[in-house]
Simulated scan of single mutants.
Amino acid sequence: MLKVYLKQAWNLIRQERLFSLIYIVGTGLSVSMVMVLSIVFYIKIANIYPETNRDRMLVAKSGMIKHKNGSNSSSSLSEGMVNTCFGSLKGVEAVALISRNSG
């Protein structure tokens, strides 16, 4: 049964070379894109050296304040704000601040 199936498949590949090539290349590209995306997402979220505790890390890029009149303000966090908000949390081992100086 398997031998007959393989003979039929080989004959169809030989008869329709263009479509067979398109199907095979399309399947290969889709499988390779899924693998590339899964590897990229794994590298972004996994605990890989030097960030071995990435799953326990909090990254805050900016802060936002909602005023009573309905307006919003947002900006980068200052050193005092970072120490006040994140330094007083329970279980915090370390707090780091990275600033971008303009000029």
Score class of each variant (00 low, 15 high):
1 M>P: 10
3 K>C: 04
4 V>I: 15
4 V>F: 06
5 Y>T: 07
6 L>T: 02
8 Q>E: 15
9 A>P: 00
9 A>K: 11
9 A>V: 13
9 A>Y: 10
9 A>E: 13
9 A>C: 08
11 N>H: 04
11 N>F: 08
12 L>W: 10
12 L>K: 10
12 L>S: 10
13 I>T: 10
13 I>K: 01
14 R>M: 09
14 R>V: 08
15 Q>G: 05
15 Q>K: 14
17 R>I: 10
17 R>C: 07
19 F>P: 03
19 F>C: 08
19 F>W: 15
24 I>Q: 01
24 I>F: 14
24 I>H: 01
26 G>L: 09
26 G>Y: 05
26 G>M: 02
27 T>C: 06
28 G>M: 03
28 G>E: 08
29 L>R: 00
29 L>C: 10
30 S>M: 14
30 S>G: 13
31 V>F: 02
31 V>G: 00
31 V>P: 00
32 S>F: 11
32 S>L: 15
32 S>I: 13
32 S>H: 09
34 V>Q: 15
35 M>C: 10
35 M>E: 07
35 M>P: 00
36 V>T: 06
36 V>G: 11
36 V>E: 08
38 S>L: 14
38 S>R: 09
38 S>H: 09
39 I>P: 00
40 V>E: 09
41 F>G: 07
41 F>C: 06
43 I>M: 15
43 I>V: 12
43 I>D: 12
44 K>P: 01
44 K>T: 07
45 I>E: 11
47 N>V: 06
48 I>N: 04
48 I>G: 13
49 Y>P: 11
49 Y>C: 01
49 Y>H: 12
51 E>A: 12
51 E>V: 04
51 E>Y: 14
52 T>G: 02
53 N>R: 12
53 N>K: 07
53 N>E: 13
53 N>H: 14
54 R>M: 05
54 R>I: 11
54 R>V: 02
55 D>I: 04
55 D>S: 08
56 R>T: 02
57 M>T: 15
58 L>M: 10
58 L>Q: 03
59 V>R: 03
59 V>M: 07
59 V>T: 07
60 A>Y: 03
60 A>P: 00
62 S>R: 04
65 I>E: 03
65 I>R: 01
66 K>L: 11
66 K>T: 00
68 K>W: 00
70 G>Y: 03
70 G>Q: 11
71 S>C: 02
72 N>H: 00
72 N>Q: 05
74 S>Y: 05
75 S>V: 01
77 L>Y: 04
77 L>W: 05
78 S>D: 04
78 S>L: 06
79 E>F: 04
81 M>S: 02
81 M>G: 07
82 V>L: 14
82 V>F: 02
82 V>Q: 00
83 N>M: 08
84 T>I: 05
84 T>V: 10
88 S>F: 06
88 S>C: 09
88 S>P: 00
88 S>L: 15
